[in-house]
Amino acid sequence: MPLSTPTARTLSHTRRVTCHGYKRADGLWDIEAHMIDTKTHDLELYEHENGILPAGEALHEMSIRITVDLDLNILDAEAVMDNHPLRICPSIAERYKLLKGLQIAPGFTRKTKELFGGTSGCTHLLELLGPLATTAFQSTHKEREAAMEESTGSAPPPVLNGCHALAEYSPAVKEHWPQYYNPQPGEKNN
């Protein structure tokens, strides 16, 4: 279902975030996130040629690549800034190598905010880490699930309790994974 019909309006800004997950020949995974911000009007930028960024040109164009294993351990990381409003912006990109050694697991967002929040990072690169983590999860999901089943014989789906629709007491879990269905207290388990 689409959004409701909006009031008359004029486009001012577009942010495009694109993420890709690639299985590598060595069995690891490269996960890439790319962001581009553009304006529909010229923008005064003191450090741009002639002090003006023309409409449609990228104000921000930034990318992050991480390499992960099936446990979602980050084995390598790099960030680049192709377009940015200030000359100093790219000097922080090297800091994103600190992602190496982290695991995409509960607490990942909190840890990345500690590492890259405020003056310790770039707001835009930090914002890319959420979709990057989700893409890592989605890209490796099938192989992670197969590996868990192989090692344990049967394992709860990794998405169990990941959102309201996949709560252990939800109708979806009851229908698709009845062996992991756990009714809420006071509810009968039929």
Rank of each mutant, 00 (worst) to 15 (best):
M1C: 09
P2R: 10
S4L: 14
S4N: 10
P6A: 06
T7V: 13
T7P: 12
T10F: 08
S12P: 00
R15E: 01
G21V: 05
G21N: 11
G21D: 03
Y22I: 15
K23V: 00
D26T: 03
G27C: 05
G27K: 06
W29N: 01
W29D: 00
W29V: 00
W29I: 01
D30R: 09
A33Q: 02
D37T: 13
D37G: 08
T38I: 14
T38Q: 10
T38W: 01
K39H: 15
K39V: 00
H41Y: 11
D42A: 13
D42R: 14
L43G: 02
E44A: 12
E47V: 11
H48F: 10
H48R: 14
E49S: 13
N50D: 11
G51V: 03
G51W: 02
I52V: 13
I52A: 03
I52G: 02
L53W: 04
L53S: 06
P54D: 07
G56P: 15
E57W: 11
L59K: 05
I64F: 00
R65I: 15
D69R: 15
D69K: 11
L70S: 01
D71K: 14
D71P: 07
N73G: 11
D76E: 14
V80Y: 05
D82Q: 15
N83A: 14
N83Q: 14
H84E: 04
L86G: 02
I88M: 11
I92T: 12
I92G: 10
E94W: 10
Y96H: 12
L98Q: 15
L99M: 12
L99R: 13
K100A: 12
G101Y: 06
L102R: 07
Q103A: 11
I104N: 02
A105N: 12
P106M: 06
P106S: 00
P106I: 03
F108N: 09
F108M: 09
R110K: 15
T112H: 02
F116R: 07
G118D: 00
G118S: 05
T119A: 13
S120T: 05
C122E: 03
T123V: 06
E127D: 12
L128H: 08
G130C: 04
G130E: 11
L132E: 01
L132V: 01
L132G: 02
T134E: 09
T134R: 03
A136L: 04
K142N: 01
A147M: 07
A147P: 03
E150T: 15
S151I: 03
P157Q: 05
P157V: 03
V159G: 03
L160H: 00
N161I: 03
C163M: 03
A167N: 13
A172V: 10
V173S: 00
K174F: 01
K174Y: 02
W177L: 10
W177D: 12
P178M: 07
P178E: 07
Q179G: 10
Y180M: 08
Y181R: 15
N182E: 04
Q184Y: 07
P185H: 07
E187L: 08
E187V: 10
E187H: 14
N189R: 12
N190Q: 11
N190V: 14
